[in-house]
Write a protein that binds this DNA or RNA. Sequence first.
DNA 1: ACCCAAACTTACCTTACGGTAAGTAAATTC
DNA 2: GAATTTACTTACCGTAAGGTAAGTTTGGGT
Lengths: 216, 216
Amino acid sequence: MSPGADSSTKTKVMDAALHVFAEKGYAAASVRDIAAVAGVTKPMVYYHFGSKAGLYQALLDQCLDISLQALKEASQGPTVREQLVRFIRTMLTLAQSNPDRIRVVVQTYSVAPGQIPEEIQFRDRLLARFDWLKGIVQGGIDAGEFKHKSADLMALAIMGQTHFLMTRMLIFGPDENPGDLPPLEEMAEAIVDLFLVGAQSPERSVANPIAGAGVA
Amino acid sequence: MSPGADSSTKTKVMDAALHVFAEKGYAAASVRDIAAVAGVTKPMVYYHFGSKAGLYQALLDQCLDISLQALKEASQGPTVREQLVRFIRTMLTLAQSNPDRIRVVVQTYSVAPGQIPEEIQFRDRLLARFDWLKGIVQGGIDAGEFKHKSADLMALAIMGQTHFLMTRMLIFGPDENPGDLPPLEEMAEAIVDLFLVGAQSPERSVANPIAGAGVA
DNA sequence: ACCCAAACTTACCTTACGGTAAGTAAATTC
DNA sequence: GAATTTACTTACCGTAAGGTAAGTTTGGGT
């Protein structure tokens, strides 16, 4: 469901908040701005969400729900390698198709601790997401697909790649691609392969010797 | 030179700004706060730095200078593997010993584009830093130390790891270490080894067969 | 027809923000 | 030693922020 499909006041405010918070950050975004973009009056925001922090929490929950659901749906596959590729691809696709949602989440945890009110909750959910990814990796270890034994370290590495790539896309935009990197469609496989076989080996994963073949 | 060594007004303001901007972010930090923490009057801030944005730019330049210098000094070594280990270790050490400096830099580029005034310059310097890391990696490719051929992708992977680890430290604090990760001192080697030999191999880099020995 | 609660508007409050005008004490220059 | 520049203070300005009080419309439920 794309933003704006429902035209209730609450939805209009949420859609506007997504845009304004993503663009300005929590502190620099004003409730007046959000109300104006939504085409409603300011007290309506307070009526429906109680406070600026309440609105932000509602928005953040929505963003986390949406991206987590997309990830869980997408990260299926015959091999763990394939699951990881799809995980990364889904994250990159999300960052490309709806940067605002990613921006809100990334901001919430990258930003100065004192910028966003303490009452805003998100750390538990991020840890849960990390644990979920760790579960996938652990599956690969248990099945003998990976020889490396630390699921924590491996999950951290995957998450790090993905996070950094997203950050990069948010900075430079989805189309700008400074440097000589693979195009986005191949990026997920390139990263997983680098991660699996290591930089001391040639470029192909043994699980997928033709990865990236045939693309531009 | 630690903050506060010089007690000129300009230095006092810079030190205070480092702390306040790091803790609250650009938008939520007020010039009043900074002046109060510095123990000077507000117009002095404007006298020395012109505007809030001017102060932030001066601070950001200082942070970028300090961390880049530390990186360039530290990233020497007999092998490229060793150079990468030292690169990561330096970044992690910086994030641990002076989180405020890292926070200011990370915030500047992770944050919503509309939060920080457009006049603030930083993208070119970040790209230059990335190119510099890429140069190290390219050295490893040229010397035959790596078989993988894309210096861009490899540099991105290294930067991604480091960035994510730092972000993690900024969120959870340098001591808190959720999950079962190696302690910080060994983290740099663990990451480089994972990166070099890949997850499909056992845990040791051929260049350093005992890396990470003794970890829980 | 009446009631009542949910949804909404107008008008306003207090506070804090970035920034500045105007003047002053102390060095520096000539 | 007068003139000027540098570093600083007090007092203030206009604006915009988060939030609310009080009243109005709207749409069931009975």
